[in-house]
């Protein structure tokens, strides 16, 4: 027992504590007492909130890291981007398991190649990062991946080879969305395509809405997401971005919960909605978020599905359809009328 004194705790615990202290402060604990002199170098976590000089990473060397939370704002000179790229690689080389890199400012930060390969990463969050085409991500250890306000280089599509992924968030201007490899353990995926990436300075850089229609017939997103149990496919873009992939719609063989928005609901025949429902044989709940960005919606209604006279095109497991919207207007009515063909009692 520690007897109420921090001195009695083993080094391992002190290193874990220092992992929660922001980097410059953690370094300064070296003058507390002799025992503390080098503890910061072995801290299991690294929390950095600005890109400064190289000393910190140089002195801690390649000691393994559990977590790294690296947030940065303005760059002071052109070399800062290079420096940050070097840090990113260094931290991955320290076998980091949980890594978050967040750009707090509107200036774009370009993450340059080579491919990101790690057998240690378990969770990776990149926020506000422009990911160069050459940065394919390849990791068998990665379980959780979130790319928010990120964009991808347009030269060619990046590949995400993360076969053991459990959760995926792709939220940003996916003008050249990455190609997703097979992910059989995927439990949930949230994919939202925004009209323009507000975190970057110049939206005019983007010439088109949504996913670029190149000549290949390869499915970009949906094929890789087809193993998910919970799936959200949303689009703030003017054009419907998943249409391309739907031409060869995969079967979502484990999909139980599906969240879609109004872009999937185009009257009168609702081709996209019909297509994905037809390819979701075990779907239990469908949520439609119509003309309402959320997270709070003025109107929320749930329809329970009756098993009688059900359309053959819909999963026999479908129990409920939930509609979230601001107001029940003509457009929402069209959707409701279409859903009635599934024999839902309201």
């Amino acid at each position: 027992m520690s007897g109420g004194s921090i001195d009695a705790l083993p080094d391992g615990i002190l290193e874990n504590i220092l992992g929660f202290v922001p980097a410059p402060e953690a370094v300064r604990t070296c003058v507390v007492a002799r025992r503390w002199r080098d503890l910061w170098k072995r801290a299991t976590g690294l929390r950095i909130t600005c890109v400064a000089d190289d000393n910190l990473l140089r002195l801690r060397g390649s000691t393994p890291l559990e977590t790294c939370d690296l947030r940065f704002g303005n760059f002071y000179d052109n070399d800062d981007e290079l420096l940050l790229n070097r840090w990113f690689r260094h931290i991955v080389a320290c076998r980091v398991r949980i890594f978050r890199l967040e750009n707090l400012w509107s200036d774009g930060f370009r993450l340059e190649g080579p491919p990101l390969v790690s057998q240690h990463l378990m969770r990776l969050d990149l926020v506000g990062v422009y990911i160069n085409s050459s940065v394919n991500i390849s990791s068998k250890s990665l379980k959780h991946l979130a790319l928010k306000y990120c964009d991808f280089g347009a030269e060619f599509r990046a590949l995400l080879h993360v076969p053991n992924l459990v959760s995926l968030t792709l939220d940003g201007h996916l003008s050249s969305a990455p190609v997703l490899g097979c992910m059989p353990s995927l439990q949930e995926a949230f994919v939202r395509v925004t009209h323009e990436n507000v975190r970057f300075r110049d939206p005019d850089d983007y010439l088109c809405d949504g996913i670029v229609h190149d000549n290949s017939t390869m499915s970009v997103l949906l094929e890789g997401l087809s193993g998910a149990e919970n799936l959200a496919l949303l689009s703030q873009s003017k054009s419907f971005v998943f249409g391309r992939d739907l031409k060869q719609c995969p079967t979502f063989s484990k999909l139980k919960n599906l969240l879609l928005d109004e872009h999937w609901c185009v009257a009168p025949v609702f081709p996209a909605l019909t297509c994905i429902l037809k390819h979701s044989p075990v779907l239990e709940k469908l949520t439609l978020q119509l003309f309402s960005k959320g997270p709070h919606h003025k109107m929320e209604m749930i329809g329970r599905c009756s098993s009688m006279n059900r359309s053959v095109a819909v999963s026999e497991h479908l129990k409920a359809i939930e509609i979230k919207c601001e107001v029940v207007d003509e457009e929402v009515h069209k959707v409701l009328r279409f859903l009635c063909s599934f024999n839902i009692c309201k």
């Binding site: 959760s167 439990q187 919970n230 959200a232 709940k285």
Partner: peptide, 8 residues
């Protein structure tokens, strides 16, 4: 959480 869509 797992019965409805909500993301971590």
């Amino acid at each position: 959480i797992s019965s409805s869509i909500s993301f971590n």
